[in-house]
Design a protein around this nucleic acid. Structure first.
Lengths: 187, 187
DNA sequence: TTTAGACCTTGATAAAAGTCAAAATTTCAA
DNA sequence: TTGAAATTTTGACTTTTATCAAGGTCTAAA
């Protein structure tokens, strides 16, 4: 599980004992494209770390799926609302491509907090990052025109444009496929 | 500072020592309407607990202010992005009415984490609540029609409609004052 | 290689919301 | 209480984006 060493890199310094204890609770997942990490209606079971690949979170409304977020390599992902509240998730998360993931179950994470109080801090920092990403997304969603939202995405997360389909991007940007297509034609 | 005892109620159980230690670091603020808790361009200094009253967070774009969130009695509020990253805040937070607040400085909170590791957990839970509120707001912002967003606000946070001005509510709901006025006329 | 289905683009039209302007109403201090 | 300023509403018109429909294009299985 050597690849998972990068997992703590951007978070915080923890003792060797905590690191080893935490890593021993991780599970490696090799997922094909379209593998579902979390499912709508189920309580989120795991916190995932994307070592390689990418994922998309979405929910369904009126028979179409609406993308909530994209997650790239080096990021943590889960249905956070469900993971926190232990209530059924409204979102489904699936890989956008063949991916290598590490995950820890909610229960094991709680166990970690008890065994290694340092982990509280590490997790707090994950939460903070998650929070900030969400806040940026909210500000982003306030960009009034469809064109501005697209340009902002191009600027901030260009990888998503390569990895996701037009429909996935359009719903993420809160516009129709047609509008996105026209914006692209005009640039 | 007896009113502040309600402060931990919905969070977690902490030991008496931690509670006393934490409370000793709190500062009571009696604020008139329009008192600024945090200012755009400054690094957020405090985490506030609203004991009585309410607050509004907003940023300025093209000479008009855009409301990001409303906070009510019993909630924590700060310019979280700035509070976490220690970079200048893009938002200003002010009271909507005469309010009673308790606040802890960022530095004292960090000190608390060192003195009372239990506080990591309590703060983590505040962060989780903050996160969930933000996520709900994001979903809410995806409600397509202006009318739906207004009805949702009426349903979920009717108090805001009494406390805030039309302009504040309209910018929060991502519509013009005129559109909000017309929606209200039609209901 | 062919071809069905999915995916994407383009066009015409409609609906939603924005802008600008003016009138009505409310608020608050003199 | 009154009048000026601020806030809210209403109206006419414009812009943006959605919807519906029809063509293209790409892709993968036969």
């Amino acid at each position: 599980m050597k690849q998972s060493t990068g997992l703590f890199e951007n978070i915080t310094t923890v003792s060797e004992a905590t690191r080893v204890g935490f890593i021993s609770k991780l599970e490696e997942i090799k997922a094909e494209k379209g593998f579902k990490l979390e499912q709508e209606g189920h309580v989120s079971g795991y916190l995932y770390y994307i070592s390689e690949g990418s994922a998309r979170s979405y929910y369904t409304r009126e028979n179409r799926d609406i993308t909530v977020s994209f997650s790239l390599e080096g990021e943590f992902v889960t249905a956070m609302h469900s993971f926190i509240t232990r209530s059924p998730s409204y979102e489904t998360i699936e890989t956008l491509e063949k991916s290598l993931l590490y995950r820890i179950s909610h229960q094991n994470l709680q166990q970690c907090f008890v065994e290694f109080p340092e982990m509280e801090r590490a997790y707090r920092i994950i939460l903070e990052k998650y929070y900030i990403a969400l806040e940026e997304q909210l500000i982003f969603s306030k960009f009034k025109s469809a064109k501005d939202r697209y340009l902002e995405l191009m600027d901030k997360k260009p990888k998503i444009i390569q990895k996701a389909s037009v429909g996935q991007i359009a719903s993420f940007l809160d516009m129709t496929i047609e509008t996105l297509s026209r914006i692209r034609a005009r640039i």
